[in-house]
Structure formats: C-alpha cells, structure tokens
Design a protein around this nucleic acid. Structure first.
Length: 467
DNA sequence: TTTTGAGTTGTTCGA
DNA sequence: GTCGAACAACTCAAA
C-alpha cells in the first residue's frame, strides 16, 4: 500500500497548510513527519529559545494530528538521508512540503526533489509561508526590488492573497507507522538550569493559541496599532511573530483576519509590517546568505571594534542606558523584545559600540522565540546600515531621546530595570544625573553616547572615502 | 537613455 | 521650548 509523506518544516499547522491539503487530496494514507535537521551545512538550526518553542509546538501539532486519527513522526539528521529512509520504510510514492526561502534550505530541497525523482517519487513544494512568492514581485525592468516601499506597492497591485484553506477533518493513517523519535529525547527544553520560566509565563506555543492571539489582536488592539505600536510599555503590537516564525499561523490567515474589518490607517500600517516580512524573504531569496554577508559589499571594509566586555554588558542588560538594558532583559527573560526597542539595542551595538552586526544577530538568533531566517538578518543589516534600503548613516539612535520619546513615563524601563524604578520621569532614562536615587549596583554608561556617535560617524565617513 | 522623485522607524544645531 | 534645516551622496524605480 503506498502512502504520501507530508514534511512539516516552518509550517507547524493543520489549517491553511497547502502541502497537507494536497496530500489529503491524493486519498493516500498520510505520514506527517518533522525532521530536526541540524546536520545539513548552511541550514541554520534553531537557537536555544526557539528550541523551547519548537518542543511545545511539535507537541501541539502531534496532539492535533492525533485528534484526526494521525500522528507526527519525528526524525533527526540530514533531511536528505532521513527522507530517503522514510520513503523506503513507508512505501511513500509522493512527498509534499511548503517552501522555504533561504539559499541553503532551497538548495537542499532541490537536491531532495531530484533524488526522489530519480526513484520515481514525486516531490511537490507549495506556496504557504508568504503572501507573494519572491519571483512574482518584480520591478518594471524585471529585477527584484531592493527598496521596501516600491516593493510593497507592487505587491498590493497583485491579486490579493487567496482565502485560507480549512484544516482537514481526518487524515488517513498508514497500515503501519514508521519509527519515530521521542520528542523528549531531543532535549529541546532547558534542564540545568531551567531558564524557561519567563518563556512559559509569556507564551503559549501551538496552532490553537496562535489563533486566539490573532483574534484577540484583531478585536482589541489592531484599531490602536498605528498609535501604540511604538510604545513598549503598551501591549500595542500583535505579538504574532513567533507563531508566524514557526508557521502556526499563515500570513494569509493574518491578512484575511486583519482585512475583515473596515479598511483603516491602522490596518494598512499593520499590513505593511506583514509586508516587511515579505520583503525580508524577498531579500534572502534573491541576494544570498544575508546572515553572513553584508548586503552592501562596501561594508566589508567597515572597521568593526572588538569589545568583548562591552558586548557582554549589552547581552546582560548592563550598559547603563535603561532603555537598552530593559530591552535586553526583556529578551533574556521572555524570548522576545518590542520592535522599537530592538532598533534601539541594535543601533547601540552596531553604532555606539561599533560591534559587527553579526554578533548581535547571532545573539538574537539564540535568544528570540521568533528568530526568523529572513527577518533577523535583514533587520540587523538595516539598522547597521549594511542592508537593503539602508537608512542614512548619520541616523544613530540616541538611547536617552528614544527612551523619553517612546517610554515617556518610564513604565517600561521601571519594569525591567528596577534599579532605576524610583527615579522621576525626567531622570529615568539618564540615571547618571540622579545617582542618589539609583541602586548603586546599576552601572554607569559603558560608553558616552555623544563620543560614540562621533566615532561611528567618522567610521562611516571613512567607508565612503574608500576607493 | 536620461531624468526625476523618493527613500520605515533620527539627531543635532541654531534661530 | 519649538521649529526647520542640515546632515551626503547614493541608489532605486519609474516615467
């Protein structure tokens, strides 16, 4: 009896899952499989926080599959050999998966498709994780876009995203299940020490809770999104990023939920943020490995500084700038950081400390529950100035002004940096001006921002003068 | 082909 | 305190 493999990757959902839907259409017994591929060179394995999320998301997916008469087969190793084994073990005649867009994953998938084809097995990839395929969005000259605004304008001219697919009611089970690893054996959860308490308090991985989060956001927050999304003390953002990163939600579902109401400036703003996700994937599809390489080659000559002690202070939230430290502690505790604060801490690392953006990108990769192979490198490069659609180099975030502008009463920094909690609002973002009311354990600024800014500007100017 | 308008998220300085 | 200009020049995308 033949069967059909559905290879789950960054799409841990049953609803609006085109690969799964196509497999159900075949009428064959279905073997759902997830492969922990930390062996294929260049394919980035999940960081520590993402492993925590992955564990729970896989458990949720398996439970949802079991409600439909199926289950999730877990395997570990290079996907090419693991899939070959599974095909042999299950007698599969077809394999379905949803597309990824990083270069290494695409090359791996192409090799797998080729190898399966040589054995007479049809592997089919599906559009599921983006609203618009990167090759569908082109300039008038037929080139990929490098600037967000015209990119997104072109996307909006295309037919709107299709209606999401429903989850299948039942999945036909094979006569015999292939062997599966035990999820616990993968040891994705931290043990000694168990640092995941803050993650458990903050998040509920899994498709069902992803949909609850989406509905709550659309009902309660979307209308205020334009006005409050930049205020880290408010719950003004969607907090959908980890659900999207693991594919518990599809961008189509998000799109249709957000546009179900009256059009508004708030909705447009939110859709544009979804558009940035599309744009980042467009970049990694067309322009290679942006986690390693500067998008702008002139940045290869940038004189990054070696600042190990200061980088460590940055990681631990001990820079002496409350808005930076609050963000880094929020990240360390919850696996997530407010978007406005991400820009501030990234600017601080890349500009004030003049540390290579890759150092920060890797730290985010390890600590974020929403670490995304497109958004994370593209976002870091954008802030550092090496990326697509780069900001002018003289745009350097002032951590005091940013704090005062976006956290005016200091509620955010008071929560995450209790050492400054007693300060009045006018001093809370510059605690060195009121030392007597600050916990003495809180550090003085590790750099003087004005001096650091001048140094960074000089470095950028030197870059411009290279031949 | 050439021209033209525009480019997510800012800061500082001087009037 | 508030406001507008300066901060560079470049690249992109479309007309």
């Amino acid at each position: 009896m033949s069967s059909c493999i559905v290879w789950f990757r960054h799409d841990l959902r049953l609803a609006d899952n085109p690969a799964l839907a196509a497999a159900v259409q075949t009428g064959l017994p279905i073997v759902p499989v997830f492969i922990l591929d930390d062996a294929t060179p260049g394919v980035r394995g999940p960081g520590a926080a993402s492993r925590w999320w992955l564990h729970h998301s896989l458990a949720a997916l398996d439970a949802d599959l079991r409600k439909r008469g199926s289950r999730l087969v877990l395997r570990r190793g290079p996907a090419e050999t693991v899939l070959a084994d599974l095909v042999a073990a299950s007698g599969a005649t077809a394999v379905h998966w949803n597309r990824l867009y990083e270069i290494a994953a695409r090359e791996r998938d192409a090799r797998i498709k080729q190898a399966l084809a040589e054995r007479g097995i049809v592997a089919t990839s599906h559009k599921a994780n983006l609203l618009f395929e990167p090759w569908e969005v082109k300039t008038g000259a037929g080139d990929p876009f490098k600037v967000f605004t015209p990119f997104w304008r072109a996307c909006r001219q295309l037919p709107p995203p299709e209606r999401p697919l429903p989850a299948p009611d039942r999945l036909a089970a094979p006569a015999a299940w292939p062997a599966s690893d035990a999820l616990e054996a993968w040891r994705l959860l931290p043990r000694t020490p168990d640092w995941a308490g803050g993650l458990r308090d903050s998040w509920n991985p899994g498709e069902a809770s992803a949909h609850r989060r989406l509905e709550d956001f659309v009902d309660d927050t979307l209308a205020r999104y334009r006005d409050e999304r930049d205020l880290p003390a408010r719950a003004g953002t969607s907090r959908l990023s980890p659900h999207l990163a693991f594919g518990e939600l599809s961008p189509r579902q998000v799109w249709h939920a957000a546009t179900a109401r009256e059009p508004s400036a708030a909705t447009e703003k939110f859709l544009a943020e979804v558009g940035w996700r599309e744009f980042c994937n467009n970049l990694i599809f067309h322009f290679g490995n942006l986690a390693e390489n500067n998008f702008r080659a002139d940045f290869d000559a940038f004189p990054w500084a070696a600042e190990d002690a200061k980088v460590e202070a940055w990681r631990r939230g001990r820079t002496g700038y409350p808005i930076v430290d609050a963000g880094m502690r929020e990240l360390w505790t919850t696996g997530w950081m407010h978007n406005r604060v991400r820009m501030i801490v990234a600017s601080f690392l890349a500009k004030d400390l003049m540390v290579d953006w890759r150092v920060g990108e890797r730290w985010f990769w390890d600590t974020l529950v929403d670490a995304d192979p497109a958004n994370n490198p593209a976002g870091w490069q954008w802030v550092a100035g090496s990326g697509a659609d780069a900001q002018p180099y003289f745009r350097i975030f002032n951590p005091v002004l940013q704090g005062e502008k976006f956290d005016p009463d200091g509620a955010y920094v008071r929560h995450w940096v209790p050492e400054v909690a007693r300060l009045p609002a006018q001093a809370v973002h510059k605690p060195w001006t009121a030392r007597s009311q600050v916990d003495p354990a809180y550090p003085l600024p590790i750099v003087d921002h004005a001096q650091a800014r001048d140094r960074a500007l000089a470095a950028f100017r030197s870059l411009k003068q290279e031949p």
